[in-house]
Nucleic acid binder design. Structure first.
Lengths: 95, 95
DNA sequence: TCGATATATCCAAATATTTCGATATATAAA
DNA sequence: TTTATATATCGAAATATTTGGATATATCGA
């Protein structure tokens, strides 16, 4: 595990984290012990459902979130693996 | 040291890292033992001088680079402190 | 001083991202 | 089976980012 990410992927992850709503969505999901439902996210922000869906998709596309579908509900959790790999890359700059 | 970064700052740093050229500029500067001159960066990429200058400015504005001016030359080095703080923030997601 | 060089800034065009309303899709509930 | 609910996708407008040419500024060398 702890795959080495290529530059394209690093770029995508960084871009996904470069938006205030997406950061707040990540924090919200991270606070939950277990997976968080989409409707909960929509409740918390002054954004339309389609906009939230779009932001969540970007986080999923960057592999920062893992999505799970249960019937008509979707839930998400943080992909700790990918964060670990991203941090590993950043460590070359940090220390 | 190792200041806690607010969300706005995390966003700015992530955005600054969310571009292929800026990532490559960071890597280039990081590879140098000592500070890297601007002209060297310009040589390495197929981008105009003004575009490089703009990208470097964004990295400086995000505090990822420290700029030093010596006469008409400018040189840059990685701000390890800020990287460390950014990584510290990301650790809440990673493990 | 005068011309050359290094970098930064200004402006505008090209491109990408964000946002929302409308609609599609799939499932649950009546 | 019909209706309601949850989420995703499409299309278009608003906004932001990227890019390069032109120019400004500051300094070095002749």
């Amino acid at each position: 595990m702890n795959t080495k990410l290529d530059l394209k992927k690093i770029e995508k992850i960084s871009k996904a984290l470069g938006d205030p709503y997406r950061l707040k969505i990540m924090e919200l999901i991270n606070k939950e012990k277990c997976a968080l439902q989409c409707a909960t996210i929509i409740d918390k922000f002054e954004l339309s459902q389609s906009t939230i869906s779009h932001h969540v998709k970007q986080l999923i596309d960057a592999d920062l979130l893992i999505a799970e579908k249960d019937g008509r509900n979707a839930s998400y959790q943080v992909n700790k693996e990918v964060f670990a790999s991203y941090i590993k890359y950043l460590n070359s700059f940090g220390c």
